[in-house]
Design a protein around this nucleic acid. Sequence first.
DNA 1: TTGTAGGCGTTATCAA
DNA 2: TTGATAACGCCTACAA
Lengths: 324, 324
Amino acid sequence: MKPKIKDVAKLAGVSPTTVSRVLNNRGYLSVDVREKVAKAMKELNYIPNDLARSLYTQRTNLIGFIFPTTANPFYGELIFHMENASFERGYRVLLCNSSSQPEKEEQYVEMLLRNQVDGIISGAHNLGIKAYQHSLPIVAIDRYLSETIPVVSSDNYQGGRLASELLIEKKCKRILHINGTREMASPANKRRDAYEDVMKEHKMEALTYEIPVMGNAEEIISRLLDEQPDVDGIFASDDKIAARVIAEARKRGIKVPENLKVVGYDGTSFVRDIFPDLTTIQQPISDIAEKAVELLVEEIEGIFDPGSQKEFVFPVQLLEGTST
Amino acid sequence: MKPKIKDVAKLAGVSPTTVSRVLNNRGYLSVDVREKVAKAMKELNYIPNDLARSLYTQRTNLIGFIFPTTANPFYGELIFHMENASFERGYRVLLCNSSSQPEKEEQYVEMLLRNQVDGIISGAHNLGIKAYQHSLPIVAIDRYLSETIPVVSSDNYQGGRLASELLIEKKCKRILHINGTREMASPANKRRDAYEDVMKEHKMEALTYEIPVMGNAEEIISRLLDEQPDVDGIFASDDKIAARVIAEARKRGIKVPENLKVVGYDGTSFVRDIFPDLTTIQQPISDIAEKAVELLVEEIEGIFDPGSQKEFVFPVQLLEGTST
DNA sequence: TTGTAGGCGTTATCAA
DNA sequence: TTGATAACGCCTACAA
């Protein structure tokens, strides 16, 4: 069996309390005892049981992440940075990929609560008021979850403007937008708002092709190119869609950027690596990740009051490739 | 405070034991009591504390994942599928991204042990015998960790052959390979072995450019193209490198595939989406994920004996794009 | 069919 | 400076 504090105590010839003290470096301890205990721990290869500890302390140092999917590098990178930031602060991460079963998001929340997580960071969609009711520290990324849940995001409106204005500068006459549906209360909708505002300012018609959550992007892109033969500029709401637009355009002999200019969104380092030609709006993923973890941990530790500030917005950056 | 079993019991007018029974559906229970308890739980919004339960049962239903980084879609997709498979089997996932601090991998293992995980799935590099010593169920993906730890992987040798032979079929005369260094005991080395075997069989010179773990791929690719003006075929050990080769070649005015043919490796769905033109060897990621979880869970539950079979290899598939 | 009591491994209070 | 004891929330013999 795994050694426990009692075993260490017996071997060191002290009481369990004393062992616990050296473990947590609390109270007065003679050097002698310290050494004896340390030796016994090493000898037994003792590893403390955090379950038992957490049961008593009422703190697990566990954070739950609820995100659509690590398979998408945007979330993958976000999660990578958040996990690092959490680890640095002494927190571990319980991972939930919600996208394969969006309706199970509530199950995930309950599971996290059963596991006594100290807080949750969510970038998923449907997480309603339910989770908040449990009065657990929560931070959202790019999603409005409720009145009192702070949201960390990039400056989506600014990003939408940058992308749209770039296409105008580049003399595009017919600029279209591709985005998800408006259903979810996401700050990402502001990308579309910005696009529409910019179009209006330039007296151009705004038209957005929507891709439903479970929709077939391929098909919608095809349809767009069929229906809009005079399109010469496309602002896609993420890099994956932008890349597909370019692939489909090439297939049809439409030259990018000569005949069609395309701007994406996200600018993950993976896509930058693999597709450096793509013009895109880069989100400061590591800043967002760092901030979200910082907020959550401060909320958990009672330093940050979630009522004090609701939104944390980070600037984006336009990265010009050769697709515009 | 959070309601506990005692509170539920009081409200339902029964003993805590009875509540525990309906919770676990154990022993004999009258319908009447069942309903009363259920009602009380709902009323109090009771959520069981898995910590306490685990402390007693000595099982957490927690699995630790140790992988380089979710930022790489190959791992991102693998982890996505593994998390789903785990969830379906009633297990939750503690996530560790080891790549930012490779030397901390042992810390991660210890952390997982403190958290009393039931098992570990690892695709990281340095995890030595140490972890095995703790006699915890472990499954490795694409890494040899120790004699008794089962390895799940795709058929790397076959993949290496497919890639190399394709380039030969396509009449390439000077075929190079790009891969990581040989240091780690990884089945991925077999991709290189296969390349070398195929070259030998065709009496061609084999030459591999190595990219160290922390190395600059960009630079090495540049050097390769500088030093090897007559190269007309490259087999890259992953899609990211393949894509970079293509980007660099284009920059130099080398036409792909006319003057240079490139084959990648991995074939993640993300890269397929964003770069469908790339010829690649696709790993059956979801099969690997599913198998790894299945093995681990069976080992945890005492069904699978890790001594019985050591390797689980899944076939790969050649996907031809226009880069060859 | 239901309740009592003790224990899972740790920590903190209090006394020595 | 150290040790006995109770408690964290739950589960299961055993008793009723």
